[in-house]
Design a protein around this nucleic acid. Sequence first.
DNA 1: TGCCGTGATCTGTGATCACAGTTAGACTTG
DNA 2: CAAGTCTAACTGTGATCACAGATCACGGCA
Lengths: 232, 232
Amino acid sequence: MNLPTALNLVEPLDRQTLGERAYARLADLLMSGRLAPGEKLSLRAAADVLGVSIMPVREAVSRLVADKALEVTPNRAVRVPLMSAAQFRDLTKVRIAIEGHAAAQAAAHRDSSDLAAIARAEEAMRLESEAAVPDLPRAVELNKTFHFAVYEASHSPILVEIIRALWLKAGPVINLDLRANPDRLAKGDAIRFHAAVRKAIESGDGAAAQAGIAADIKGAADFILSRGGLAE
Amino acid sequence: MNLPTALNLVEPLDRQTLGERAYARLADLLMSGRLAPGEKLSLRAAADVLGVSIMPVREAVSRLVADKALEVTPNRAVRVPLMSAAQFRDLTKVRIAIEGHAAAQAAAHRDSSDLAAIARAEEAMRLESEAAVPDLPRAVELNKTFHFAVYEASHSPILVEIIRALWLKAGPVINLDLRANPDRLAKGDAIRFHAAVRKAIESGDGAAAQAGIAADIKGAADFILSRGGLAE
DNA sequence: TGCCGTGATCTGTGATCACAGTTAGACTTG
DNA sequence: CAAGTCTAACTGTGATCACAGATCACGGCA
């Protein structure tokens, strides 16, 4: 094989199957809170919207059900799971433990490109939240970008994947409110925590980074719990 | 509805679909190390073995692929992922962090029935490993039982589910060797760590429980790494 | 003897059909 | 007019068919 080396550089180009794309679409809807807890989802209807047969949707949904980001009730209805306050508290505790750990790891293992990505994400969200009329859905998206810029800096793909699954569960509960309520964003807690996390990671202070992420998560969770929309 | 209350006690009886059963079977094969890294898996062949059509197998496999417990190569072949030494180290670090955390939580939240289950599991594995000719596959199974008895005592379903996913990835690498090599079991490290973990959880010492689990995981991982079967 | 082309067979992916169970709405009945 | 009943349209699940691409072994050419 005497071909130019350029051909050797093409990466695997991971499977762009229809099922994969359907999964990405549904996962994004969940994470950003555009699907509310309790909302039903029909395979055939979703297939129609996505312009494919139900097969790719079936695969996507079965994955999300496995992740407990969706559930199929005994009556054969797919829906976003309803979360009790107790379950939400458990989820929040786990998120604080794992995402806090990831932030601490990020402070230890970040390289310069990680720092650049984190700084960029932090600034973008700060600007958006200080705007006269903040675009809430966009703020939710930027918040996600910042958090994952931090977690990616841990250089632990497995950790990042676990956190992604956690966000899949938390998204509908957390971001549904955030998309509609400017209150918490206006309060500016998240912005301050993000700045603290960024500084901690830049200076390599793992404990501070962990504390900042924990405070950010707890702040958002307490806000949700105080609004009292959760059952039990 | 004037039926006896007994009927109200039947729990949801979660969907016993064929896909669910296929998933359970394949997951068990992976966790116990009966499927080796690199081993290929044909949907149709698996469907034949399980006595169903390929549809339930497809669902099970797509779930396991989502969990990265299986992978489908660009050449359309499903196989157990090969793990590099670096990936295995990452996985081990994450396991130590998360399973250690779960053990600490177990020490804080365990009730008497948890303690009984842990004690029972610890004793069963100790007896098996002290037998003249230990049944290695059974020892692997008992090891799993003990660990999950501990994690269940954390009373955090989300944490347990995350750990299950981690074991799905680690199983083929760790238990493949353990099923064939009596060396590590004979050395008795695991037994001692388990006893320490049990005692720590009984006395409510979270730090000690965490340290014990960490040592157990690290011991097994170092054993695998020292055998040098991993690529890169 | 060594190498390359070639076709049969296998792979996962997607679409379609079939089915049992549920739901909701319209119709009938008291 | 209200309540019960029955049908028609939906639900997810499973099986089967169709297809493009990859693999591998066989046979012919150099």
